[in-house]
Simulated assay, not measured.
Amino acid sequence: MSNEKNVLDGLAENINASSEIPEDTKRQLISNIMRAKEEPVNILITGPTGCGKSSTINAMFNMEVAKVGVGVDPETMEIQEYQLDNLRIFDSPGLGDGKERDIAHSKKIVELLHRRDANGNALIDLVLVIVDGSTRDLGTTYELIENVIIPSLGEERHNRLLIAVNQADVAMKGKHWDSVNCRPDEVLTAFLNDKVRSIRERIQTNTGITVNPIFYSAGYKEEGIDQAPPYNLSKLMLYILKAIPPKKRLVVAQHANCDEQMWKKSDELENYQEEIKNSLIDSVCEGASSGSARGGEIGGAIGSIFGSAGEKIGETVGKVVGGILGGILGGIGGLFRR
């Protein structure tokens, strides 16, 4: 049985069995869930050589096909594809290994970003650019973002680009990283905040595009070596979910790494957990008669139509769906506020 069937079918069954959700609302919620089974999600992960693309894929999705440093010819000109049901991760070759290779790799990225699906929409839902936090030389990264990716995103460039600074643990040559608690101290946090601010301002100045980079550490995983706990992976997941359409969020979340330890170390963990849950409630409730938002906001949406009774129904729907999501996605409980 596929993970897709376990999660989405189980979610629909639990909503259908609920006695607290009106029947017409149930039908819409279940329709949204079944639609998610058919929704393809395509994410391109790119960045310079050594930035930690494979480590990030492994940590977030536990995709063993993305071996760190093995299994892929470092000179390949092709973009690797990793498939989990209807979630596809595109892993582009790293840039920074020579001008000719960079030109060839960039051409492949441009071709992929210009591809359209059967409905004429952009194939790639989201581009995640990973920055190497251990280096001050970001010339290759800026070249990739400003001259390759942003021009290829066209009118959708404001909504389909995320930038994340990886390897926060070695950003100052390992200094000021609390290895016991797996988090940066105040000095390193200030350094990383300055780095993301600098990236944001540089891209805004040169392209007019506003981005909100974050910093994180994917940890380290290689055959025979224990996984070092990631840091701010919950924040990265939240930003990914918020960047893609609500109807596609369940597709990503259902494949999140089931190891709760992957998600527990973050700077504002409870806030990220709550926002992740809310983003998934939005995904289930989108377009339903009880509204398309969470908790009390659902109540507010239908309250304008049905009055105070409608508000109560909406609030109930939000809470019930949130509870069901927490139970069905219990394997990724580290993503949810307990």
Score class of each variant (00 low, 15 high):
Tyr239Leu: 08
Asn42Cys: 06
Ala168Ile: 06
Gly295Asp: 12
Ile313Ser: 07
Arg197Gln: 15
Gln80Trp: 00
Asn271Gly: 13
Glu222Arg: 06
Tyr216Gln: 06
Lys247Tyr: 02
Lys264Met: 14
Leu233Pro: 11
Asn3Cys: 09
Phe191Ala: 12
Cys285Lys: 10
Glu78His: 10
Lys248Thr: 05
Ala301Leu: 08
Ser179Met: 07
Ser2Cys: 03
Leu95Gly: 06
Ile30Met: 14
Glu270Asp: 13
Asp169Phe: 00
Leu241Asn: 01
Met60Asp: 04
Arg183Gly: 15
Lys248Glu: 03
Thr56Arg: 10
Thr25Gln: 07
Glu286Ile: 07
Thr135Gly: 08
Gly219Asp: 05
Thr207Trp: 04
Gly52Ala: 01
Ile244Pro: 03
Ala66Asp: 00
Ser134Arg: 15
Ser55Tyr: 12
Pro93Val: 09
Arg35Gly: 09
Asp132Gly: 10
Glu156Leu: 01
Gly299Arg: 01
Val41His: 00
Ala12Cys: 01
Phe336Ile: 06
Val251His: 01
Lys264Asn: 07
Arg116Lys: 01
Gln204Val: 05
Ala164Thr: 07
Ile203Thr: 00
Leu238Asp: 11
Ala228Tyr: 02
Gly307Gln: 11
Val41Ile: 02
Leu192Gln: 01
Val284Gly: 02
Ala293Met: 15
Pro245Gln: 12
Ala104Cys: 08
Met237Glu: 03
Val252Ser: 04
Ala228Cys: 03
Asp226Lys: 15
Ala164Arg: 02
Tyr231Gly: 03
Glu270Gly: 06
Val127Met: 04
Lys277Asn: 10
Asp102Asn: 13
Ala118Gln: 04
Thr76Ile: 14
Ser198Cys: 09
Trp177Cys: 08
Arg200Gln: 15
Ser292His: 09
Gly300Lys: 11
Gly154Asp: 02
Lys26His: 04
Ala12Leu: 06
Pro40Asp: 05
Arg200Ile: 06
